[in-house]
């Protein structure tokens, strides 16, 4: 291993670590045990996947994944707030 291939290892490691993190978050979504845990898992999942998009963008050398990551960040936030609100009150818009 030379110093030149170090960035390649870093990017690969980051991708694997983030994929594993996404798998852990998915585990929490599937297992629960309560509804709050599932929403928390979803929250973690969307942040992780968004970061994975950035790392993949670095690997592929395309800047276009940024827009996708931004969309995930916005939509993920809105959906999680709606879910949390629903759990608390039983309806989204009061």
């Amino acid at each position: 291993m030379t110093l030149d291939s170090l960035p390649w290892f870093a990017v690969t490691y980051a991708q694997i670590a983030l994929a594993l993190a996404a798998a852990f978050a998915t585990f929490r979504i599937l297992v629960g045990p309560r509804a709050e845990d599932r929403v928390l898992g979803l929250d973690t999942l969307y942040v992780t996947v968004m970061l994975l998009f950035f790392v993949t963008g670095l690997r592929l050398g395309t800047p276009f994944l940024f827009e996708a990551a931004l969309a995930i960040a916005v939509v993920g936030f809105v959906s999680n707030v709606a879910l949390a609100k629903f759990l608390m009150r039983g309806e989204v818009i009061e």
Binding site: A14, L20, A25, F27, T44, T48, L51, V55
Partner: peptide, 21 residues
């Protein structure tokens, strides 16, 4: 520097998700 930042960031995220489990 970029490699270090990537490794630190992804490790922290992984630890957070690990804690979630």
């Amino acid at each position: 520097l970029v490699a270090l930042l990537l490794v630190v960031g992804s490790t922290l995220t992984l630890l957070g998700a690990f804690g979630l489990v």
